[in-house]
Structures are given as structure tokens and as C-alpha cells.
Design a protein around this nucleic acid. Sequence first.
DNA 1: CGCTATACAGTAATCATTACTATCTGATTA
DNA 2: TAATCAGATAGTAATGATTACTGTATAGCG
Lengths: 138, 138
Amino acid sequence: MANVAETLREKGLKVTPQRMAIYRMLCETRAHPTAEAIWEKVKEEFPAISFNTVYTTLGILERAGLVQRLHVGEKAAHYDADTSPHIHLCCERCGRVRDLHKAGVDLTEVAQNLRAKTGYEMSKIELNIYGICPECRH
Amino acid sequence: MANVAETLREKGLKVTPQRMAIYRMLCETRAHPTAEAIWEKVKEEFPAISFNTVYTTLGILERAGLVQRLHVGEKAAHYDADTSPHIHLCCERCGRVRDLHKAGVDLTEVAQNLRAKTGYEMSKIELNIYGICPECRH
DNA sequence: CGCTATACAGTAATCATTACTATCTGATTA
DNA sequence: TAATCAGATAGTAATGATTACTGTATAGCG
């Protein structure tokens, strides 16, 4: 995370100002923004950037393993620069998504056990929990 | 499951032939079909049934707590008449979704622990694992 | 600097899902 | 059993997220 340009180059991606802005923004937030929210933020720096560029760039970053695409709920996807497997808590009222790293469940370990038991070659594990956050319960 | 009509009536839903066919089909399969697949199957019995009716009926059954709507992958939702919280294994090649009830993780217990720890009022828990199934690995 | 593959902006197309509307039907009451 | 009515159905249109396409611009490399 020290050098955004270097990280992109290591993955074989061309380094462009738009790409750097998108990836840097994701690394600096903990809010799990949607593509639209990322677009709004990056437009402050690049007023001419198109939504399409943001969207396709996020897909490129995901395929390069630099960001995680989250499918919480049924609406637009959220993005996370933390690619380690961890739990996501999603408030059904305000839509906010939070990380939960320590929860008594080691997802990597669960995946390892299941590989031996089921014969599946695991590639991704998603644990999403929905509910109402303390703030929304007044 | 003994009597589909009775189950619907208990939930305060009107009992119609289309509804019974949709719900019965879901109870009898273990394949986690999409709305489209359900439509194709039910059309054998009701050739005039519309996709929309299948789709909205599935939403009604979900809201009544009779079926579970699964968001595995990024494509169309899958449906499951088993509403207990359990793990879903999804093959990224053939798209098949399988249940996994015993996996060393008690999802209900995880949710209980998190409620105390985070203050969230949990309502739903989703654990999806993606990979390649043994069959698709040849 | 000049070349080439690829990124960008803008727009159009696709796909799942939801909304709308005019009939039709299951359940209830007389 | 017939009348009534809330809600279900079929058909179609609208929405919203995602993907595809196209002409131009730019990063990386010699």
C-alpha cells in the first residue's frame, strides 16, 4: 500500500492517473463504497472521468486480486481493498457494511477442512451477516 | 411439507394451483433452481403460466418465510425450500449449488455470539463458498 | 520522438428485477 | 348456490446494475 503506482505495475497493469486515484481512494477508506460512490469521490479529482471507466477499472482491479467485490444485499456491488477473507456485517436499514476480522471463526481454516471433505477446489469464501446496526436501533 | 396447500394457508396465503405447483416443485428438488428454471419446470403442468407470476410468487413465498433466496455469484438468484441457515457450495464452472449442513461451523451459534459482541440485531446469515466441484475437475 | 497495445469517455445493449394494469379467481358471506 | 371482493394472474413496461461497443487519447517502450 506504500506505493499505489508500484502495486499496479507489479500486477502488470498500466499505471494511469485515473487508476491510481480509484485504487488509492479504496485503500484509504473503510466504508466499502459502491461503484457509484467511488465515482462521486474520484470526480473531485478528475471531473471528466466517466462512470464506465470507474466500473471497468474496478473489474480490472478485482481480476488482478487487488480489490474484493462484495455482493451484500441485492443491490449494487460494494468494493473493498482488503482482500483477506473476513466477515461482512450489513445493516439492512442504512446499508452500511462493516468488517469483522475476529469473530471466533477462521474462514481460511473452514475452507481447508471443506476441501478435504467435499473435494471442492475452493477459490473464494463469503460470510455475510444481515441485521440492524446499533445506531439504527436508536 | 406433508400438505402444500395447508402450509400455504397457515401463512395466510391464498391457495392457488399455480402457487401450489411452484412451492411443491421447490420442495421436491435439491437443485437450487433459478426463477427461470422453476418457470420451465412448472410450465409442463401450466403451459400458460407467466414468468412474472413465478417471479412474484417466489417473492411472496420468501416474505412468508417458506423459501430462501440465494445470491450466489452475480447472476440470477437461486431458490431453496430449506430455510434453515446452512452453507452453500457453488461451482464456478457448472454453476451448481449444493447444501452443506454439517461443516464444523454452527451458523446460528456464530450469529448469537456476534449479536452480543457487536450489538447488531441479526436477521440473516449467508455463508457461500465458491470453487470448482470434483466433477468439473474431471 | 514514434509506435503499439491498451485505457478512456461516451453511448448503447443486455439482463435481472420490479412496477403497472386489466382481467380473473379463491374464499367468504348472504 | 350466487354475489362480492381482496388478492392472484398474464402481459407488458420501466428500472437499475452490469457489460459491450467505438472512436480517440495516452502509457510504456524502443
